[in-house]
C-alpha cells in the first residue's frame, strides 16, 4: 500500500489542479505559470541527465527543444488546423486528443534523432570541445529554421491553438494543462527509472571515471547514445508542449538564452539530483514571475543571484542528493535511488 502512496498523491494533485483550472478557481495567469513550470521541469530534468549525471557540459538544449517544438507543431497543424501552406486539416477534430500526443511523440523522436549530432562526436571527445559541438548544434538548428520559409522562417509558426479548440470541442476540459502535467510526471518517472537501474548507473560511472567504466564492462558509447538521445528527446517533448501552451513558436525563443536558462535550472538544483532539478525548475519559474516588476533589471538580478549561489553554495540546492536522502522518512513512500 505504502508503495502506491506517492503515485496516488501525484495523480490526486494533478486532478486537483485540473479541477481548479476547470472551475476557474485559479485564473488563467496562474494556469499558464503552472504550465511553464511543467515545461521547465521537463527541460531541467532532461538536461540534468547529460550535464548532471554524465558530467558533460551541453549548452544547446534549446536547439533540441526547438526541433521538438517545430516537428510536433507541424504535425498538429497538419492534422487539425487550416494553414495556407499545409492545407486543410487532415483529420476531423474528434481525433485531436489522440493526435496531439502522437504529435508530441513525433516531436520527441525527431529531437532525439537530432541528439545524434551531439551523441556521435561524444564518443571521441568530451568536455569543452563537446560543449562547443552542442553550442554549434543549437545555432545550426536555429538558423536552419530561420531559413525555412515554408514554416515561417524567423517570423515563427502558428496555428497550434486549433488543436486545443478541437480537443475542447469534444470535451471542455483544460487539455493542454493535463498534457503538460502528464508529460512532466512521465519525464520524471522515466528518468528516475533509468537512473536508478544498474543500466542507468553506467551514466554517472562515465562521469566519475570514464576509463574505469569502459574497462569494467560499461559500453560507454551505448550509454552516451542513450543519455544524449533520451535527454534531447525529452527536450523535444518539452518543446512540443511549450509550443502548444503558447500557440505560437519562433526560432528566437530557442536560442542560447533558452539553453542558458535551462543550465541555470540544472546547476541551481544541483547536478545529478532529479528532485533538485525539478525543485529548481519550479523555483526558477516562480522567481521569473515574481521579479517581473524589475523589468530589464530582472536579467541583471537573476544572474547575480546565481553568481552568489556559485560563491556560497556551488553544489546547488540539493547537491547530488535526492529528497529522500534529506528526509529519510520519505523513503517509505517513494525511493528516488
Amino acid at each position: 500500500m505504502q508503495k502506491h502512496v506517492a503515485t496516488i498523491a501525484i495523480f490526486a494533485g494533478i486532478i486537483l489542479l485540473v479541477l481548479c483550472a476547470q472551475f476557474h478557481i485559479l485564473d488563467q495567469y496562474y494556469i499558464s505559470v503552472l504550465m511553464f513550470m511543467g515545461v521547465n521541469v521537463i527541460l531541467a530534468s532532461s538536461l540534468n541527465l547529460v550535464n548532471g549525471y554524465m558530467g558533460e557540459f551541453s549548452c544547446g538544449h534549446g536547439g533540441f527543444m526547438c526541433v521538438g517544438a517545430y516537428v510536433s507543431s507541424i504535425c498538429t497543424v497538419l492534422m487539425f488546423s487550416k494553414n495556407h501552406i499545409l492545407g486543410a486539416p487532415l483529420l476531423p477534430p474528434q481525433f485531436a486528443f489522440i493526435g496531439f500526443p502522437l504529435a508530441l511523440v513525433a516531436g520527441s523522436a525527431a529531437s532525439s534523432v537530432a541528439g545524434l549530432v551531439v551523441a556521435i562526436p561524444s564518443f571521441k571527445t568530451r568536455g569543452d570541445y563537446l560543449a562547443i559541438i552542442t553550442l554549434a548544434a543549437n545555432y545550426i538548428v536555429i538558423s536552419a529554421i530561420n531559413n525555412m520559409e515554408i514554416i515561417g522562417g524567423p517570423r515563427g509558426f502558428m496555428g497550434m491553438s486549433a488543436t486545443e479548440r478541437a480537443m475542447q470541442s469534444m470535451l471542455d476540459i483544460p487539455w493542454v494543462l493535463i498534457f503538460v502535467l502528464l508529460g512532466t510526471v512521465f519525464t520524471v518517472w522515466l528518468l528516475r527509472r533509468f537512473v536508478s537501474s544498474t543500466l542507468g548507473k553506467g551514466v554517472p560511472a562515465i562521469c566519475q571515471d570514464e576509463i574505469a567504466a569502459e574497462i569494467m564492462s560499461v559500453d560507454t558509447n551505448r550509454m552516451k547514445l542513450i543519455a544524449f538521445m533520451l535527454s534531447s528527446g525529452l527536450a523535444g517533448l518539452a518543446g512540443g508542449l511549450y509550443a502548444q501552451v503558447l500557440g505560437y513558436v519562433n526560432p528566437q525563443s530557442f536560442d542560447i538564452m533558452r539553453s542558458t536558462e535551462v543550465m541555470v535550472m540544472v546547476y541551481l538544483g544541483g547536478m545529478g539530483s532529479l528532485s533538485g532539478a525539478a525543485i529548481a525548475a519550479i523555483l526558477y519559474t516562480v522567481l521569473m514571475e515574481a521579479l517581473r516588476f524589475l523589468d530589464v533589471w530582472k536579467w541583471v538580478v537573476i544572474p547575480l543571484l546565481l553568481i552568489l549561489l556559485m560563491q556560497f553554495r556551488p553544489e546547488g540546492i540539493m547537491g547530488n542528493k535526492e529528497l529522500s536522502d534529506l528526509f529519510p522518512k520519505l523513503r517509505k513512500y517513494y525511493s528516488f535511488k
Binding site: 541555470v264 546547476y267 533589471w297 536579467w299 541583471v300 547575480l304 546565481l306 553568481i307
Partner: peptide
C-alpha cells in the same frame, strides 16, 4: 557558470 552569468550581467 559564473562566467556565463557575468556575461549576462554585463549585457543586461
Amino acid at each position: 557558470i559564473t562566467a556565463l552569468m557575468a556575461g549576462l550581467v554585463l549585457e543586461n
